[in-house]
């Protein structure tokens, strides 16, 4: 509107539309490819060349057991690690946004540095720790590693959500005679839960998808990304594309429901 007054709107705006559409295509074409290849009648050991359309892969989605075992392992790791990371991270976020305290910049630094450390450095350093302490690498060490890269992420995400919230509601509840426990469950919890839930979901995505750090600390345990990477030289079965498509569809459904619920809440509040 404002730009049209100076007569610059047409080509600049069209260029913007073209780049935006191009950007979204770039983001989504590989995702379409994954879905497309989940319907491919696989030729040879690696499902990377289009052959013919079939529903067989979806009908036998859970056929190849190595990948299903690995998926289960990934889900177990993610459940434990992300719960731990969410508890640790949310407590820190609560402490630095809710209370005045000394050492804020130091705590911030401690949270930011793991986030700005390349995964190979994180993996390599954990490897040297476990090697020097003779810790056998396996499920527990994977959980530690995943908790590590999720904790900062959760803390900073929750912190961003909590910043600017109205904490005077807590004081109001206390003034009206509510005890600390009741204030926490009735006021504080409802305020902080959406932010924490969002951080938990995103940390699940980080954990389930991690290959690099995991490869340093996994020992003989195979998570889904590890199974895919290690066997990709020999085989890429179509079932993998099916599993990935399923996870993607669930994620899209969650995102759509969440944004629609958010829009409705906003509309209700005016």
């Amino acid at each position: 509107m404002s730009a049209s007054r100076t007569g610059r709107k047409p080509w600049g705006t069209y260029l913007l539309y073209v780049v935006a559409v191009g950007g979204f295509l770039y983001l989504f074409i590989p995702l379409f490819t994954i879905v497309q290849f989940s319907f491919n009648e696989q030729k040879g050991k690696r499902n990377t060349e289009w052959n013919a359309f079939t529903f067989d892969n979806w009908a036998h989605a859970f056929k190849s057991s190595d990948y299903i075992d690995a998926l289960q392992e990934s889900l177990k790791v993610a459940a434990v690690a992300c719960t731990l990371a969410t508890v640790l991270g949310a407590l820190v976020a609560l402490a630095i946004t809710r209370y005045k305290m000394k050492g804020g910049p130091f705590i911030n630094m401690m949270l930011v540095i793991p986030l700005t450390t390349p995964e190979i450095v994180m993996g390599a350093s954990l490897f040297t720790l476990f090697f020097n302490q003779d810790v056998e690498r396996g499920f527990a060490t994977i959980v530690v590693a995943h908790t590590l890269f999720c904790v900062s992420f959760v803390a900073l995400t929750v912190k961003a959500r909590l910043r600017g919230l109205d904490w005077s509601l807590e004081d109001a509840a206390a003034d009206l005679g509510s005890g600390p426990l009741r204030t926490f469950t009735k006021i504080t919890m409802p305020i902080i839960t959406p932010g924490i839930a969002a951080a938990f979901l995103l940390s699940l995505a980080l954990s389930i998808d991690d290959y690099i750090v995991t490869s340093f600390v996994a020992g003989n345990v195979s998570t889904l990304p590890r199974e895919i990477f290690d066997s990709s030289r020999v085989e890429i079965p179509a079932q993998i594309h099916v599993i990935a498509s399923m996870i993607m569809f669930v994620a899209i459904a969650i995102i759509l429901i969440a944004t629609m619920a958010g829009n409705r809440r906003k509309a209700r509040l005016g």
Partner: peptide, 8 residues
């Protein structure tokens, strides 16, 4: 959405 699809 790409976040929720395997990097590999």
């Amino acid at each position: 959405v790409p976040f929720f699809t395997s990097f590999l």
